[in-house]
């Protein structure tokens, strides 16, 4: 925020040298003031929903999260109708969210990084343009459509039973374009002079990419991967379709018993919210935990990015 303040105020504190006519300078000052007010206004308006969301979620869910039981137990024993005297834990949902997001990353990151390497280092002509276009299309696919597609292939075409890893596949469809685009940008930032320096030493192209280009852009690529991870961790539609909610802790991505995740924990309790205080606590606690996880991953990304950043 501090940079926005200084950037916005700097023109107002101009050195006041009046080389042009006084009236022109006065009208410029007026326009400058108006523009500053408009920009600040827009900024503050945009800030309102953010603060509102944070305040609502934190005020209603933070206390739930403070209880150690929240992190230790699952929801086993919760009554059929969802009414109960105790909040119990979200461990099953936290573990499920992390497991499925990690599986998603394992599927999506290699594909995305190799696609980006092809597009930046090798891709020329029609094929590269076609791939780039398809990455754009993929990034526009709604998450429910990605989930439907996996459902159609998994269940209808192959007749397999649903398991959490199917959900990870659908999430990977959403993660691939995000990570491909961010990795592409990072690879493009590596100066060609470094590639030339490596070629001129008689290093083959593939080794130049592995030993010079990737290490130089590593921190940026990792930041992109973690942002993609944070994005799929909060995704809901594929979970609803492909990973049946279960109140029990489930750590097997290949089991047919479903797997809980924080968004589906919210979904399972939200219908009882107005009637049942405990259900409402679970909803807000899960929402708060989800925000915390995403925030922690973003922070981790920035930290890792800072420590591995190449100084040039």
């Amino acid at each position: 925020m501090s940079t926005e303040v200084s950037a916005a105020e700097r023109p107002l504190r101009g050195s006041g040298r009046e080389l042009r006519g006084r009236s022109e300078s006065a009208s410029r000052k007026l326009r400058n003031t108006l523009a500053t007010i408009v920009m600040w206004g827009a900024f503050l308006v945009a800030l309102i929903p953010l603060i509102w969301i944070m305040w609502t979620v934190l005020s209603k869910g933070f206390s739930t999260m403070l209880d150690i039981v929240w992190w230790q137990k699952d929801q086993s024993g919760v009554g059929a109708a969802g009414f109960d005297k105790m909040i119990r834990g979200a461990r099953h949902a936290i573990v499920g969210t992390l497991l499925m997001s990690i599986a998603t990353s394992i599927i999506a990151v290699p594909l995305a990084v190799f696609t980006a390497i092809y597009l930046v280092e090798y891709g020329r002509g029609k094929l590269a343009r076609a791939i780039s276009f398809m990455v754009d299309i993929l990034s526009g696919v709604p998450s429910i459509v990605a989930a439907l597609f996996i459902y159609a292939v998994w269940v209808t075409t192959f007749g397999w039973r649903l398991m959490p890893v199917a959900c990870s596949l659908a999430l990977a469809l959403l993660m691939i374009p995000v990570v491909t685009r961010s990795t592409e940008e990072m690879l493009k930032l590596v100066p060609n002079e470094l590639r030339d320096a490596s070629y001129a030493l008689g290093v083959p192209k593939w080794k130049t990419i592995v030993k010079v280009v990737l290490p130089t852009s590593f921190s940026g690529i990792l930041t992109g991967v973690l942002l993609g991870f944070a994005r799929v961790a909060g995704e809901t539609a594929p979970l609803l379709l492909l990973a049946n909610y279960t109140p029990f802790l489930q750590q097997n991505l290949f089991s047919g018993n479903g797997m809980a995740a924080l968004p589906t924990l919210i979904n399972a309790n939200v219908q009882f919210m107005s009637a049942d205080k405990i259900s409402a606590d679970r909803v807000w606690g899960a929402a708060c935990t989800l925000i915390l996880i995403v925030l922690a991953i973003n922070l981790l990304g920035r930290l890792v990015g800072r420590f591995t950043k190449v100084k040039n």
């Binding site: 100066p191 030339d196 320096a197 001129a200 008689g202 590593f218 100084k311 040039n312």
Partner: peptide
Amino acid sequence: TVGMVFQRPNPFPT
């Protein structure tokens, strides 16, 4: 066999 030095110094930053 034939090495090259460029216009701008380009050490590998990593």
